[in-house]
Design a protein around this nucleic acid. Structure first.
Length: 461
RNA sequence: GACCCUUUCAUCUAGUGGCCAAGGAUGUUGCGUUUUCAACGCAGACACAGAGGUUCAAAUCCUCUAAGGGUCGCCA
């Protein structure tokens, strides 16, 4: 069985890059009817917050990603880690190191000065003497001294790192708490994780974790390291780049489906296909098709996808989503017509709600430029004429085509161009010359409201 | 500085030695549809980082160079 996991450290909101990593892991598990686990990496007591964990879970809920079983908190598993530390100590695979932080800093400086890669020199590796007093020791694991540490990465292929590059890293701090690379390996093994899918930035941790796997006799999972997502300038995505918090996308009017579709195509592809429903992703996703190279975030494409999903989800669902944006049209008898007329005009739910409000609420003022452009000498007469026509045939006006018919009638009778009536009418109804089709707008408003808005404009002439 | 990874249109990507004088998508340009905007349709512009090899044949394999990124914590 395939078991994947997402293992964030709770230091803030869920980042867009984190979501993509989680998505890939989730999809791979779901595709194989496997398990997708959520583990919170909170071994650093000073930095983690409960809020952050909640934020991550909330973001998962929004996008509809479900995890299996209970959330695992590393902070609650310290006694498990302690056991393994003791075991390694007993077996001579780990040892106490009495080097102070100051000594360590000093060592690093001299190494840097010699243009070497800074690393622990192993001075306590085979220490048999009397430990210096007054130093709380850390526990270090014995990493191999010779050869290479190799593994096959699901994305990058064969990776080999010289053992000389991997030092005897600390697995327990002087206060006894375990460190990241140690607990990750243990938890992944204990939780039965078969596929570790994570960011590129962990590539260098992998050989360290392999040291732990080997020392404890655990079987290695498959590792797949995802290249980073950069910003539109190709630089590392940071908080300065605006919306990096997943939940910002919700407030900015993006659909979860669109976000996931966007993210799944960042670094992964399936031929030429661009649009993937969640179900399709679940059945098609394969880490084998993940790209090696980093990709850049591109808002235009996200926007395009979002408008695609806005246009294609059922109207009743759309109405539900719109509630969060101050548009309450649940019971509106012209709901279908209203959304059909507007949903091609909004790339986000924010824009769409603006479009809808434009129709639902009578204009309080008119766009100056459009007003000037639309209002001509004969406009007053034409609009009066049109209003009269509306009044006289009020009872038979229902569908957009009904309104269209009387517009045609007016145009034919007066022998004028469509613009003569269309432009001022548009200003009267919406306050400006852009927006949905006139026939639809009038049908949604009904004859009464249409006449009211025309009269209001007439009163300014 | 050391080690590691990456490199196809502006962007996401297809491509695993011949089907590629490089395909799709976003964006962009023009035209059409339209009372307006949008949407849609059609047409166009835009790329194999560079240099050397290997081969009958290279975007694809090898070497070097360059550029970008990552990592070097008692953070995760």
């Amino acid at each position: 069985m395939i078991v994947t996991r997402f293992a964030p450290s709770p230091t803030g909101y869920l980042h867009i890059g984190g979501l993509r990593t989680a998505l890939f892991s989730w999809l791979w598990a779901r595709r194989n009817n496997g398990k997708f686990l959520l583990r919170i990496e909170d071994t650093d007591m000073a930095r983690n917050s409960e809020e952050a964990t909640k934020a991550i879970i909330k973001a998962f809920e929004w996008v509809g990603m479900d995890y299996d079983g209970e959330v695992v908190y590393q902070s609650k598993r310290f006694d498990i880690y302690r056991q393994y530390i003791d075991q390694l100590l007993e077996e001579g695979k780990a040892y106490y190191c009495y080097m102070t932080k100051e000594e360590l800093d000093e060592l690093r400086e001299t190494q840097m000065a010699r243009k070497e890669r800074p690393r622990y020199d192993g001075r306590y590796r085979d220490f048999k003497g009397t430990p210096p007093s007054g130093v709380e020791p850390v526990v270090r694991i014995k990493a191999p001294i010779w050869g290479d540490i190799c593994f096959k990465d699901g994305v990058k292929g064969d990776i080999c790192i010289a053992s000389s590059e991997v030092d005897d890293f600390i697995i327990a701090r002087s206060d006894g708490t375990p460190t990241y690379n140690f607990v990750v390996a243990i938890d992944d093994a204990l939780m039965g994780v078969t596929d570790v899918i994570r960011g590129d930035d962990h590539l260098y941790n992998t050989p360290k974790q392999i040291v732990v796997y080997n020392a404890l006799g655990f079987e290695l999972p498959r590792f797949s390291h995802l290249a980073m997502i950069n910003n539109e300038e190709g630089k590392k995505l940071s908080k300065r780049d605006g919306a990096t918090d997943v939940m910002d996308y919700k407030t900015n009017g993006f659909l979860a489906e669109a976000l996931l579709n966007f993210l799944v195509r960042l670094g992964w592809s399936h031929g030429d296909q661009e649009i993937f429903s969640i179900e399709e992703m679940k059945s098609l996703f394969d880490p084998q098709n993940i790209n090696k190279s980093a990709s850049s975030y591109n808002l235009d494409k996200l926007l395009w996808l979002n408008s695609h999903y806005i246009k294609n989800i059922p109207n009743d669902q759309l109405a539900l989503l719109l509630k969060d944006f101050g548009v309450h049209i649940d019971g509106h008898d012209k709901l279908e017509l209203l959304l059909d007329a507007t949903k091609e005009r909004g790339k986000t739910l924010v824009e769409l709600s603006e479009q809808i409000n434009l129709i639902l609420n009578a204009p309080e003022s008119y766009n100056e430029k459009d007003y000037k452009k639309a209002i001509k000498e004969d406009t007053k007469e034409i609009l009066n004429n049109f209003a009269a026509l509306l009044r006289s045939s009020q009872d038979s006006l229902h569908l957009p085509c009904d309104y269209h018919a009387i517009l045609e009638k007016l145009v034919a009778a007066r022998e004028i161009g469509f613009g003569k009536i269309g432009q001022p009418l548009r200003v009267a109804l919406l306050g400006s010359m852009t927006g949905a089709g006139l026939d639809e707008i009038m049908s949604i408003l009904g004859a009464d409201e249409t006449i009211k808005r025309i009269d209001k404009l007439l009163s300014t002439l």
